[in-house]
């Protein structure tokens, strides 16, 4: 079955990929908020992450104890092979559409 990615799902996946070793709840949210200049809610973010995990595009593990958050460990996320494949497919689909479409990259139309 072909699985489709939502816009926000793709955003989260790519952000996690960008952050590499440092991808956990707070950092993902901050990165998306600063890069996209939009407010996202913690509930929405974790719901999406949970869905991506269920689709097996993400895997996660608990880190060790930390100082700054009351000793509570962080859950780190990493994009899986399947995840990478889906993002890649998504990108190639878009590239194809971009090249075929008449839209120019300049937006001063």
């Amino acid at each position: 079955m072909k699985v489709y990615l939502g816009e926000f799902e793709e955003l989260v996946l790519l952000t996690i990929a960008t952050l590499g070793q440092e991808a956990y709840g707070v950092s993902i949210q901050q990165d998306i908020e600063s890069r996209c200049n939009r407010k996202i809610s913690i509930g929405a973010l974790h719901s999406t992450i949970t869905r991506l995990e269920e689709k097996e595009f993400l895997k996660s593990w608990l880190g060790g104890a930390t100082q700054e958050r009351g000793g509570r460990s962080k859950r780190f996320y990493e994009i899986t092979r399947a995840g990478k494949k889906t993002v890649a497919e998504s990108k190639s689909l878009r590239d194809e559409l971009w090249s075929l479409s008449k839209v120019t990259l300049s937006t001063n139309e």
């Binding site: 956990y24 709840g25 707070v26 913690i42 974790h46 608990l62 930390t66 700054e68 958050r69 009351g70 509570r72 460990s73 962080k74 859950r75």
Partner: peptide
């Protein structure tokens, strides 16, 4: 939900 509580706290201190 340990990680989520952690996230919440980290946001709070920030």
């Amino acid at each position: 939900v340990e990680d989520l509580v952690g996230d919440l706290d980290e946001w709070f201190y920030q």
